[in-house]
Amino acid sequence: MTSFDDRERAFEAKYARDQEMTFRITARRNRLLGQWAAVQMELTPAEADAYAKAVVQADFEESGDEDVIRKLVGDLTAAGIETDEGIVRRALEERLIEARRQLMEAQ
């Protein structure tokens, strides 16, 4: 039984690490996405930092990426920037790759 218990604990630990890494990648991606949108809206550095944090917070509203995409499309449109959901989704995918790269380099 000991080897089974050890395997179970190892799988649980790996699952917890994987979930933490997924959360960190998503949070980093959302921050990078917020910074990208802030550049589009020509925000000051202080405003850009606050906006990036707001984008990270927006992801906690519901499961999935739709809340973040909705926020960015709405904010960019309100700022007079011509955008659509496709543009934001492409930016999201590009920032996901960058977030993974940054976190892998940090380890």
Rank of each mutant, 00 (worst) to 15 (best):
A46S: 13
L76F: 06
A91I: 00
F4T: 15
F23D: 15
A52R: 09
D67K: 13
E61F: 09
L33M: 11
I81N: 04
L72I: 09
A58K: 14
V73M: 02
E62L: 08
G86M: 04
L32W: 08
A99G: 08
E98C: 00
L76Q: 06
L76C: 05
L43I: 04
A16D: 13
Q19G: 07
E85W: 05
S63L: 03
D65M: 11
T2M: 04
V55D: 03
F60Q: 15
I81G: 04
G64S: 12
G74W: 13
A54N: 11
I87A: 06
D67P: 06
M104V: 05
T22L: 10
D18F: 00
E94V: 07
A52D: 09
Q102P: 01
A106S: 13
V39K: 14
R9A: 13
V68I: 14
N30Q: 12
E62H: 10
V88I: 11
D6W: 02
A52Q: 08
V73F: 01
R89S: 09
A58N: 12
Q35D: 03
E93A: 14
G64D: 02
P45T: 08
T22P: 00
F23T: 15
L103P: 07
Q19T: 14
A10P: 01
A10E: 04
A38C: 03
R29K: 12
G86R: 09
A13I: 01
A58R: 15
R90A: 07
D59K: 14
L96K: 15
F4S: 14
L72Q: 05
K53P: 00
A27F: 01
A54P: 02
G86A: 13
V55E: 04
L32I: 05
E62Q: 11
M104A: 08
Y15G: 09
G34Q: 05
R101L: 03
L32K: 10
A13R: 08
D65N: 13
Y51M: 01
I25S: 03
W36N: 11
A58Y: 10
M21R: 14
R101E: 13
A58Q: 15
A99W: 04
E20C: 02
A54C: 01
L32S: 11
G34T: 02
A46Q: 14
E12C: 10
A99S: 06
Y15A: 12
T2Y: 09
R90P: 00
A106P: 00
Q19W: 05
A99Q: 08
K14L: 08
A106D: 09
A10C: 05
A13H: 04
E94Q: 13
R24H: 07
V68N: 13
Q107E: 13
D6A: 07
L72K: 06
